[in-house]
């Protein structure tokens, strides 16, 4: 997940990312970046993330928890 985030926001300091913060605000991610992240996670982890679940992936913590429940 961190690697894919680094690909989208190469200048970001992911070490200091607030785990519960809204990724879109923390990393200044727009709609296209977000879609690219979903595509990357889908390809890499084989997890199908329906669009209606997007709100459950808003922070790093939430996203990791969600991906675990989906068997990633």
């Amino acid at each position: 997940m961190l690697e894919e985030l680094a690909r989208i926001a190469p200048e970001a300091d992911l070490e200091s990312l607030a785990p519960a913060g809204d990724l879109r605000d923390e990393l200044d991610i727009d709609s296209m970046d977000h879609l690219n992240l979903m595509i990357a996670l889908h390809r890499r982890l084989g997890v199908e993330i329906p669009e209606r679940d997007y709100p459950r992936l808003l922070s790093l913590d939430a996203a990791v928890a969600y991906l675990r429940t989906r068997g990633a």
């Binding site: 709609s31 296209m32 879609l35 595509i39 889908h42 199908e48 993330i49 669009e51 209606r52």
Partner: peptide, 17 residues
């Protein structure tokens, strides 16, 4: 858009833009 995207994998989804 939501109805269309629901059936599709991320690669095939559209943005409202």
């Amino acid at each position: 858009l939501a109805a269309r995207n629901a059936e599709r994998s991320p690669e095939a989804r559209l943005l409202i833009a």
